[in-house]
Design a protein around this nucleic acid. Sequence first.
DNA 1: AATAATGCAACTGAGTTTGTTACGAATAGC
DNA 2: GCTATTCGTAACAAACTCAGTTGCATTATT
Lengths: 134, 134
Amino acid sequence: MKRNSRLSLALHTLGHMAGEPDRVRTSAEIAEHAGTNPVVVRRVLGKLREAGLLTSEKGHAGGWKLARPPRQITLADVYLALDESLIATDSDDQVPSCSVEHALHRRVTGVMKDIEQSLIERLGETSIDEMRGA
Amino acid sequence: MKRNSRLSLALHTLGHMAGEPDRVRTSAEIAEHAGTNPVVVRRVLGKLREAGLLTSEKGHAGGWKLARPPRQITLADVYLALDESLIATDSDDQVPSCSVEHALHRRVTGVMKDIEQSLIERLGETSIDEMRGA
DNA sequence: AATAATGCAACTGAGTTTGTTACGAATAGC
DNA sequence: GCTATTCGTAACAAACTCAGTTGCATTATT
């Protein structure tokens, strides 16, 4: 895998789950489908669980399941859950001292935040139901 | 610096240039403002030059300048010039063999491409003139 | 008790990216 | 022509990121 593999893994898995919402899947099963490792799956799906998109059960017959109907989970939910912040600006310890620089910096940051907001709104228009498979 | 520093560096520099479009700036000067290294600046701005957004002149009194009026350079131009592909899908050597998987894979890929297209369109609505400083 | 699953920490290896040095090529001014 | 200045590029080091892996504790079912 390469870049954005977390987002990709999340979307593929949710796409599967949207097809059979009631089926409980183990991380091993999901990892097999995705061609990766169960621990990696648990790491990514753990984020989605924290965000309330999935539930997981330990022990025998445990595994992962959607926490809501597929139509009520949007790509924005997934994006925010993964906390990727693709349009991230530089860190706060990087703010320039010069006032002209500072003004420009704030403007650039503001524009980037606007763009990210637009992206999130756009993502909110698509539910995982719209890419379900099987 | 951290993540997306290339995009950030490009936007900050273009923001400056949009404020004084005729002024020629050296990579050393730009690097000083950005708190980085001239070679790093040349690397990033080189991409923008390849895309036709900037011009550079060697030798005495050489340096960098906008190739077009600030209003005619959009954030989409910058994004595409840097070739970042934030919403990139996984590489082609990763396509699954199972037909069900394959169908889902194509759908997920399609959705991600749509999203990236939306992002680019949104970026095209803002020109670097709108974040000019000084 | 045995089995099967998640949760989590720690480590490794590959890959990416920034920073740096060095040097060649081109240009302007003297 | 000579010199100073600047870009262009290659090569390398250091830091960081990330997927993958192992190991083990915890929890739940049988």
